[in-house]
């Protein structure tokens, strides 16, 4: 299949500390993946693993240190002057809907503004009709939306309003950065189901960034697990989450609380002491906590191995299958 968006060897380096004791943090370290049309692709990992940085770079809020963002076969840097071309197609939904919207501004203003900026319709009537259609798509009506301020919505409703706004331009790709983490568990599924519906109805692709593996499993087709700037495992969600290969994915999966009092966690786990230190590690960054770590893991960054259609960045799988970079 043709690739809609391709992230090619993306690297982002942040520096921390003063001039004298500066440390380098590879927030995103040589990350490559792609998203196909009509696909929900999940990017999962704990906070501080670099997933939001990737979203920011794709959305051009942040500049990459190196690497390319290729959209529909064209390098985004080369068409940067034509901002509309990209933003019309790629829209975003953010974590906290109450921070997305200015609390002192009526929510419908954002819709009319977007319609104006993208020249979506000429007459006001047409704009209203367009807004109405998109609100209906997320399960809201124009009347219960018009003239209201953000504080008059509940979190779940406002997040759906935020999705409706992003739909105005008829995007091909929706970048959803932790869209459900601020929403109540009981309403979470309404947002996640919405993504499924949008994909089925409009063939939209979604980059679903989350730390919630259970919803990622429920909604996505493929998944990439990130750890401290690296993608450690990537492949079809069924394989990655049901038969995790990388020890970190296994730990993540085991740490999801099961809604079953008969299956409580029994083993104790080891937690990272300081994030910074893990970023500074010479070899595999998970080696400090990995139950299967060897001397090699502490010395050398593992290469990407391809095992049964899944990419794994672990020494355990070195030599099995094709270890070349794709």
């Amino acid at each position: 299949m043709e690739k809609l968006l391709e992230v090619d060897r993306l690297t982002k380096i942040f520096y921390q500390g003063s001039l004298l004791s500066r440390i380098k943090i590879m927030a995103v370290d040589d990350v490559s993946f792609h998203i196909e049309p009509g696909e929900i692709f999940a990017l999962a990992g704990e906070s501080g693993c670099g997933k939001t940085t990737i979203a920011k770079i794709i959305l051009d809020f942040e500049e990459a240190t190196s690497g390319r963002i290729i959209y529909k076969g064209e390098d985004r840097e080369s068409v940067k002057d034509d901002k509309v071309w990209f933003t019309e197609d790629v829209q975003a939904v953010f974590q906290d809907p109450f921070e997305t919207f200015n609390p002192l501004r009526r929510v419908d203003r954002y819709f009319f503004e977007a319609a104006h900026n993208f020249e979506l319709a000429k007459k006001r009537k047409e704009v209203v009709k367009l807004i109405e259609e998109n609100l209906n798509a997320v399960g809201l009506s124009y009347d219960e939306f018009y003239g209201k301020y953000p504080s008059e919505f509940s979190g779940g409703q406002l997040q759906r309003v935020s999705v409706a706004r992003s739909l105005l331009t008829d995007p091909k790709l929706l970048i959803a950065d932790e869209p459900v983490s601020m929403v109540d568990a009981s309403l979470r599924m309404s947002i996640v189901n919405l993504f499924k519906k949008l994909r089925e109805q409009f063939g939209m692709s979604v980059l679903y960034i989350t730390h919630d593996l259970a919803t990622a499993y429920y909604v996505s087709d493929r998944i990439a697990i990130m750890f401290r700037g690296h993608i450690v495992e990537m492949g079809p969600v069924e394989q990655v989450l049901m038969e995790p290969k990388h020890p970190y994915t296994q730990l993540l999966k085991d740490s999801i609380p099961k809604a079953d009092p008969n299956q409580r966690w029994s083993e104790d786990i080891e937690l990272a002491e300081l994030e910074q230190e893990e970023y500074q590690k010479k070899g595999c960054r998970f080696a400090g906590r990995c139950p299967q770590a060897t001397e090699l893991c502490k010395e050398e960054v593992p290469a990407n191995a391809h095992v049964e259609g899944v990419l794994v960045k672990c020494h355990k799988y070195a030599g099995t299958g094709n270890t070349k970079l794709p």
Binding site: S47, H211, S255, P257
Partner: peptide, 8 residues
């Protein structure tokens, strides 16, 4: 909190 930390 993240899942792993949550568990902790």
């Amino acid at each position: 909190l993240d899942v792993v930390v949550q568990r902790g």
